[in-house]
């Protein structure tokens, strides 16, 4: 088979997959609509429509991946990556300009908490003792931080920790760290961020979460994974 034919087949498969993806997306949106109440026309009688409350939380951007890279040694001792387009002192890592994006697509406001499965050390220096994963000659260890913002102004009228988590890079709240756990029920669900994440009816219902990594040159190579969990409580 000619190479051009192979290319054509791959292109057709790609287009078919895109179409399939579109159908799935439309289907998902359809699922959400069925819950919000829909009054059918009737000839006579009393219309009694009870619109049930629902809580729908969506990460419309739910994965961040800078790809594979390394610190530009020996010139630099560490690299800085963030989701605002920063990639400093690294080699081969991609530039990422979009943070995680959370939408409240339900019809009730939500009280929001955020937590990471790992802290900076466990994410970047897993399996290493502190002295093995530092910025050589420096004092700081690896960093894994977050910062929140309203992607649409008015999405969170009551910000919690406004002077910290909403205004500057702050260390993520890691699972099991009782010092940053502020969830209302007994189970730890991380740091309180927004006590009235606005619902879809307001049209202002998007919060952005940016992340920042400082990677020491002596961090072990290999896969690095972290999961950020958003816990939403109906209010």
């Amino acid at each position: 088979m000619k190479n051009t034919n192979i290319l054509m087949i791959v292109a057709i498969v790609a287009v078919a997959f895109a179409l399939f993806n579109l159908v799935i997306t439309i289907n998902k949106v359809g699922d959400i609509k069925t819950i919000t109440g829909y009054a059918e026309l009737q000839d006579t009688g009393v219309a009694d429509v009870n619109i049930e409350s629902n809580l729908v939380i969506v990460f419309t951007i739910d994965t961040l991946d800078w790809g594979a890279g390394h610190v530009d040694t020996p010139i630099y001792k560490y690299a800085v990556l963030d989701t605002t387009g920063t990639m400093l002192q690294g080699v081969n890592w991609l530039t990422v300009s979009d943070g995680l994006l959370l939408e409240n697509q339900g019809n009730v406001d939500a009280d929001l908490y955020f937590e990471s499965t790992v802290d900076a050390h466990d994410f970047i220096c897993e399996g290493q003792i502190a002295s093995e994963c530092t910025l050589a000659g420096g004092t700081a260890d690896a960093e894994f931080q977050w910062q929140f913002s309203e992607n649409i102004t008015g999405s969170c009228p009551t910000k919690v920790h406004e002077v910290n988590d909403w205004s500057s890079w702050v260390d993520v709240c890691a699972d099991g760290d009782a010092t940053c756990d502020e969830s209302p029920a007994s189970a730890g669900e991380g740091r309180s961020i927004c006590s009235d994440f606005q619902n879809i009816g307001t049209g202002t219902n998007e919060i952005r979460l940016d992340l920042r990594l400082v990677i020491p040159s002596d961090a072990d190579t290999g896969d690095k994974q972290a999961t950020i969990t958003a816990s939403a409580y109906a209010v």
Binding site: D65, I228, S231, A234
Partner: peptide, 15 residues
């Protein structure tokens, strides 16, 4: 799941 990435999870709580 293997690889290098930051992923997300959602927890919803009805009251």
């Amino acid at each position: 799941l293997a690889g290098t990435f930051i992923g997300t999870a959602v927890k919803v709580n009805a009251v």
